[in-house]
Simulated assay, not measured.
Amino acid sequence: MDIKTVKDELQNIIHGKSDSGQKTLIQTIANYLGGSQRTSTMAKSDKQYKQKETANLIAYCNQNNLWVNDKVNFDLFISEGAEQKVYIKDDKTVYKLNDSIYYSTWLDYFTNLALNNYFFPDTTYSLVGFCLIEQTLFALLEQPFVKANQPTNLEQVKEFMANNGFENTRNHDYYNSELEIILEDLHDENVLTQDGILYFIDTVFYLKQ
């Protein structure tokens, strides 16, 4: 598959277009936020931009019944990072609550999810809905539960990424110059190994501006 075809596919995914006519909730939300972005007069770097974006998302959730606070059993908490809290759903799936803190906009965060699902379908995110907890908005996601049974070899990660066009730029960060995609933070807590296979469970994708 040539680079132009891949770029076209990625643009279709990010903007909620699909050859099958099916659209995931992630793509629906990204499409909604993209429309709001095009009509906004504020710069994305403006701190008030994300506040406005969050208010728009809350209104959208109210209009479309996307609140799912009752889905999570908060007693089944298993881990927490700077960006998200993880809970067990069942023996095959985890819930992840994420407030998009790593991203300047919610649209950038949902673009990250769409890119993860394209590049790493074994750890696809599904958007369940949204939770409002102590006045903070969280996206609630499902993801396959991966139980590591051996340490991750970071040289193997580097080789895997190189074979897929991503150059290691520094530490655990990578860049694909043809697709203009940045992928950060691929350390051994975000890439797990099960039976010799790498599973990318927490990705931080950015499109180069």
Rank of each mutant, 00 (worst) to 15 (best):
K85P: 01
G165H: 06
P121Q: 05
H15I: 12
Y32S: 02
Y103H: 07
C131P: 05
L25E: 14
I133R: 14
L192S: 00
E159Y: 01
T193G: 03
D108G: 03
E159N: 07
D75E: 14
D8C: 02
N117E: 10
F110Q: 05
K47C: 07
T93W: 10
A43S: 15
L179Q: 00
F119Q: 11
F119M: 09
W67T: 00
F77R: 12
A55M: 10
M42L: 15
N56T: 07
G21T: 07
I58L: 13
I26M: 09
A30H: 05
Y118E: 12
M1T: 05
N168Q: 14
Y49N: 06
E80R: 10
K50A: 02
S40I: 02
L141I: 03
Y87Q: 09
T111D: 13
V86A: 03
Q51P: 04
I101T: 03
L115Y: 02
D75Y: 00
Q11P: 04
N116T: 15
Y109G: 03
Y32T: 11
Y109Q: 10
H187G: 07
P144I: 13
F77Y: 13
A82M: 09
S36C: 15
Y60Q: 03
F74Q: 12
Y60H: 15
N73E: 08
T93S: 08
L25N: 04
L183C: 09
V146Q: 08
I3R: 06
L137M: 02
F110W: 06
S20M: 06
V86I: 14
Q209I: 04
Y174N: 02
T203W: 00
E178H: 00
F205T: 11
T5C: 07
E83G: 04
L113R: 09
V191D: 07
S36N: 14
L141V: 03
T136F: 01
A139R: 00
L137G: 03
K147Q: 12
Q150N: 08
